[in-house]
Amino acid sequence: MGRLTLDDLVEGVVAGDRRCLGRAITTVEEGDETSWSLLKRLSPHIGSALRVGITGPPGAGKSTLADALVRELRTRDLGVGVIAVDPSSPFTGGALLGDRVRMLRATEDPEVFVRSMASRGCLGGLARTTQEAADVLDAAGKDIVLFETVGVGQSELTVASACDLTIVVLVPEAGGMVQAMKAGVMEIADMFVVNKADRPGADEMEFQLVDASRYLISDGRRPPVLKTSALKDEGLAALADEVLQYREWLHQGDRLELRRKAQAKTRIRELVRSALEEKFWSQAGVDESLSVAAETFRQGEQSLLEVAQSFWLSVREQIAVSDIS
């Protein structure tokens, strides 16, 4: 009972205490001063978990597949954490987080930590602080942290830069090759899963993906294509095996180090970008200048580029973004 101090949180997280883990994730979701001190204190314990992203279009069965994969990983005696992201309403900011409904086996196992996160305006399939939440689960000693993304289309690909392994989940009726050939979602896959493989068209989809994967060879590795049916409980052991084989492959040479460094660069860049943007637009006078610029543009005598340039010239004198804290 009573309030948890920062010391309590650090100690509790490392010990795997559920209440402290839950509170620590809430803390990092806020992204404030305390959250960064917490993560700094936890950093000696962060880095050993494999971060696996499960992404795909809405309705592909991501939550159900994540649930089944968790169970397979648990039979192999691995500690698992799950972060399930659902969208926030762009109008009210509210969110209905329903992934637990599809993760009944994972939520029944007290050793599996399942956390729902609202995307809070972030568009890449994850929330802004999903990585930090994964850091907390990593520090708690989880071997595998699964990110289950918001259903994505053809361009929301943040998950790939946040994960060590990206699994793209498709279904037999995903629209054949015309859809799948589209860039993006194909290129981020380290592994493909044709889920709902009990339905007609699964073999055809598998064949087309295998064919396409020839062009996706990277670092000598061709993304494998697996068929699963979470409904009929087929192909899930093979998926878990593939995940663990990938982990071994990643640990060879400097592969993991290179990936982690790229992830760190993305995170720093993203933090600087969002902080600068927020600071810039909240400076006094910027909003007024923007209105003036909009009026000028509406008069139709200047191009959008010209208007943007004079807007920038008019505000750059007034703004002083000296630090981004």
Partner: peptide
């Protein structure tokens, strides 16, 4: 505007 977790 609240974040609602539904368990099923």
């Amino acid at each position: 505007g609240m974040e609602v977790v539904y368990t099923g």
